[in-house]
Design a protein around this nucleic acid. Structure first.
Lengths: 417, 417
DNA sequence: CCTAATTTGTTTACCCGACCGACGAATAGC
DNA sequence: GCTATTCGTCGGTCGGGTAAACAAATTAGG
């Protein structure tokens, strides 16, 4: 009931026949996207840039305004000759979208308005494995309610939960999240029941959502083919192909961490041998860079502080640290080469600790890529560091929900006035 | 000029605004696809199954009939009560599509009608590397002309050329085809000039087209997520995600052969070390299975005969042959595991020599997969052997061209009558 | 044999949305 | 002030999907 329509995809859903209402929805969304991506502009320019008729644009803008999604913009006097246009701009205030990240020791929430501006942000320490699924969902529902109370004037159009594990996104069941100790937890169902109707809930893998966030807002926004790699204790991946998230049949694509690319003699936490994350995970770096009793290997300390220490040592020219980073960088290149050969992306985006220590990793990584990638000039791929930090997953979650408005602006009801 | 519209994708192209003509095109295609996939049926049933209005379906069917794409089917008397429906069926005769495969020592051509039935098929020995690009294209054009003369009553809607190498599908330039000795050859331009307008030409990687063929006609037709692996001298791959071919930014996705998954000490023909095809390519199998002077390693002999000999030895219980097959099967599993972890397909399809010797390879391969794939039950993936044999690429090529008719049936002009 | 019931396919009127041409409005340049 | 230019809207047109009515073709049953 709270579940969204089958799969908001584009103008014309796969199985549903197209009628003219679909055309209208598509064109409304097209105008809205143009205003989001290119900024305020007059109706005449919108018509010119979309290829739609002037009259049609007027009608579309009027409808969007009625739904509170656009407003009149500031008039820029003194351009060229002729009657100046009345600018139309995206009005973000009417709606908002919520992203939630569930992780081992915290829950984070982020609320964006339609323009992608942050309305509310909070991060709360929470021992999720100890609490269990039900109590955690109670806690999440409480946090969401608090956020909704804070941004009272904006109607929430959707909520997306990021979970570190395997997620069947069709029904929002977390089939396996080892770090949380969860197995077959119906997160969507549980949250939908707690939050009531009116705010569709989605559940998605955290790395996938981070990839979407980078695609939507990062320095490489809207790159049609993007591979996202994030380094934490494990290694996560998200693939965006042709502007769409690659989910796979069972919704569990992008599991790069346990790909057999590492040393076949090293045993991984998952029990297998030679998993890639034994070569590029945080553990691999720390083992190579420091002795077991070194404070940077104390997992009770804050990760960002420890990473800063490692960066400082590398900057100071510490041999062992530099060697460890070089080694991880090369291993990163080996795996990334596989990805580039397979999906031929325009950008490989590094997130998590890869981004923090990126300036030491990129050079050995690209050296390895140059050896390994088939095709000239890395097959057109560039390695880029994420700038979103640790909020990528919640941002991506909120953006997924926002996107439904651009897919079909008629979801937002017309103003009663 | 002969190049098709930007990229025939679906009802609503990405950038093009939707108008009601697009709705019409989409609905025409929907009806046509239904008749292709589910067989002949009455207008009433079509209306019921597509969700379109009865009157709309009548109008759509009339237009399709006018374009020669459907005809009245055989009346099945004696069903239930009420007026019996007049069946409508796909009429394949009006149009045809051409697939051409360019390879090292042959050129193959296949012409399909709209129903996917073979109208014309030919395979011609040709020493492409010796002949050079221009003379080869002359030869191809001659072959195409011959095919068109043979199937005179069907209008060709498109032609797709399969090339073993890196292809920029946007402009049909073969940027690198080592086996042909080609580099930056404008195949599309050259063929379009030779064939004249009226028959849009596409150029695509051969493994990609084989993947499409399997997706379109194989035992696993229409599986939304499919990974295709073909073993020849090298190893090729094609990925179909969400029912669409994954091409990548530079159009050179699926280059699995030179992925660093093999023994890092073995040098590949490409000059790199540890390429996967050094472990699973035909050469790897032959080296492991037979001495250098063994007749099965005589590359001047026909490949199918040699493969049959290997199969016979394995059936006879020859230890060395069985060990070699087991070893290749395991290496196949290692690489396939990477693909499954990344893309999470429903089916991994084996083509080329993998299919011929499949019964010996599948068991060690799946054993390896069970160890390597993250997620329960191989993440939902099944290993399937191709049944298309060596015609997969031409079939896929013809199907790509056919698909444009289902995307937009108005491409086929109405009958003059 | 004839009628009622049922299902099919077409016809008619209608609605909705995009498109086109024309027109008033607002502005710069002269 | 006048003209050229551009903007936004209005009325009309066209195309396509929808709904309801209706004729046609068949089975069931007396």
């Amino acid at each position: 009931m709270t579940a969204p329509r089958p799969l908001p995809d584009g103008v014309a859903g796969r199985g549903v026949p197209a009628d003219q209402a679909a055309v209208r929805r598509g064109n409304l969304g097209r105008v809205l996207r143009l205003l989001r991506d290119e900024g305020p502009r007059s109706r005449a320019r919108i018509a010119e840039e979309t290829g739609l008729n002037k009259a049609t644009v007027s009608s579309l803008v009027a409808e969007l305004a009625d739904r509170g999604l656009v407003t009149a913009g500031d008039v820029h006097r003194g351009g060229s000759v002729g009657r100046p246009g009345l600018p139309v701009q995206l009005d973000g205030r009417a709606v908002c979208a919520i992203g939630v990240e569930l992780n081992v020791d915290f829950v984070a929430i982020l609320v964006l308005n339609l323009r992608g501006e942050v309305l509310f942000e909070q991060r709360m320490a929470l021992d999720v494995p100890a609490l269990g699924a039900e109590a955690t969902l109670d806690e999440v529902a409480r946090l969401v309610q608090q956020a909704r109370d804070t941004v009272r004037d904006a109607v929430p159009v959707g909520l997306t939960v990021a979970v570190p594990g395997l997620v069947r996104s069709v029904d929002g069941v977390v089939s396996l999240a080892p770090n949380l100790g969860w197995r077959d937890v119906p997160v969507l169902e549980g949250l939908a029941a707690r939050l009531g109707p009116g705010c569709p809930v989605r559940v998605e893998n955290d790395a996938n959502l981070s990839a979407i966030a980078e695609w939507a807002t990062g320095p490489e926004a809207r790159t049609p083919d993007l591979v996202y790699l994030t380094g934490e204790v494990g290694v996560g991946g998200g693939l965006i192909v042709d502007g769409r998230l690659l989910r796979g049949t069972a919704g569990l694509s992008g599991e790069v961490g346990h790909t057999p690319l590492g040393d076949p003699d090293v045993v991984c936490g998952c029990g297998r041998r030679g998993c890639w994350e034994t070569a590029v995970g945080l553990g691999a770096l720390l083992r190579a860079a420091a002795d077991p009793d070194d404070p940077v290997r104390d997992s009770t300390r804050d990760l960002e502080v420890r990473l800063a220490e490692i960066a400082a040592r590398a900057d100071a020219g510490d041999r062992r640290t530099l060697d460890a980073l070089r080694q991880v960088g090369r291993a990163l290149g080996t795996g990334a080469a596989v990805l580039i050969n397979l999906v031929n992306p325009a950008v490989v985006l590094l997130g998590g600790y890869f981004a923090v220590l990126g300036r030491f990793l990129v050079e050995p990584m690209t050296a390895e890529l140059q050896d390994r990638v088939f095709g000239p000039d890395l097959a057109g791929a560039r390695v880029v560091l994420s700038e979103l930090g640790f909020t990528a997953a919640v941002r991506g979650g909120a953006h997924v929900a926002l996107e439904t408005v651009f897919d079909d602006p008629t979801r937002v009801p017309p103003r009663a006035s």
